[in-house]
């Protein structure tokens, strides 16, 4: 219990004094996850829409695989990305290992299946609703996808938030590919792991509280942005 209180008060002081190191790793956390989120959405959302509107041979298989990948263990993702990016690996020449870019790649792999699966469910329902109308209007494939993505934007926001939550709290993958290097690849979660390992429980807890606060803040912000339309049943 003492540690918990110490952690809280330390978190409080770290925040009010705008601790430089804390600010740095918190910002890096946000930067890595938001980049992974933005790039991940560009892949996940159109993929989800395509899976909803298009009938092709391996559609069911792709969906099943995507659903299964939602539970992909991040450590394993980290390991695979590590092997690919390591100097002797196929992408070794890029020299990306132990950089924030590597962390972004790993996080994308972790969150894309999650976001695509959630998005696909709502897009599929919406497509069932719209199917007859859009077929009747002779819309092209890309118009279909645009229409679905736009009209399901609230549900997509929820999918994105789920991706953000998973990304920002993720430690296994980015620890491996980022290496938790001070001033380079250290983020909130890896710092927490490090401080815990060193027995600095209060500091670890303080970082943990900051992480939770950040997550809540971002969620509230995005929800508030999504509420800007006055009326809506969707």
């Amino acid at each position: 219990m003492v540690d918990l209180w110490q952690g809280l008060s330390q978190a409080f002081w770290l925040v009010v004094t705008l601790d430089a190191e804390l600010a740095e790793i918190a910002l890096r956390s946000l930067q890595v996850t938001f980049t992974a989120l933005a790039l991940g959405c560009l892949i996940a959302m159109p993929l989800a829409a395509l899976l909803a509107v298009r009938r092709f041979r391996w559609r069911r298989t792709v969906i099943a695989v995507l659903n299964a990948l939602m539970g992909l263990p991040p450590v394993v993702v980290g390991l695979v990305v590590y092997v690919l990016l390591s100097r002797s690996g196929p992408l070794g020449v890029l020299g990306l290992l132990f950089t924030p870019t590597a962390m972004i790649i790993a996080q994308m792999i972790v969150i894309v299946p999650l976001m695509a699966s959630i998005a696909h469910q709502s897009l599929r329902d919406l497509w069932a609703e719209y199917h007859d109308l859009l077929i009747s209007m002779n819309v092209t494939q890309s118009q279909k996808i645009k229409t679905l993505l736009w009209d399901a934007r609230r549900a997509l926001l929820t999918a994105a938030l789920a991706g953000f939550g998973r990304g920002i709290g993720e430690v296994g993958a980015i620890m491996i590919v980022g290496g938790n290097i001070d001033h380079v690849t250290r983020v909130l979660t890896t710092a927490i792991a490090l401080e815990t390992g060193k027995g600095e429980f209060a500091l670890a807890l303080a970082l943990g509280f900051v992480l939770i606060a950040l997550t809540i803040l971002v969620n509230l912000l995005i929800h508030w942005l999504g509420q800007t339309e006055r009326e809506g049943r969707w």
């Binding site: 919406l126 609703e129 719209y130 007859d132 109308l133 009747s136 209007m137 002779n138 229409t147 009209d151 399901a152 809506g232 049943r233 969707w234």
Partner: peptide, 17 residues
């Protein structure tokens, strides 16, 4: 022909807009 036609369904389909 389909491009020159429109259809009003028995149960109206509303776009979420």
């Amino acid at each position: 022909a389909q491009n020159a036609q429109a259809f009003v369904f028995q149960r109206p389909v509303m776009l979420r807009r």
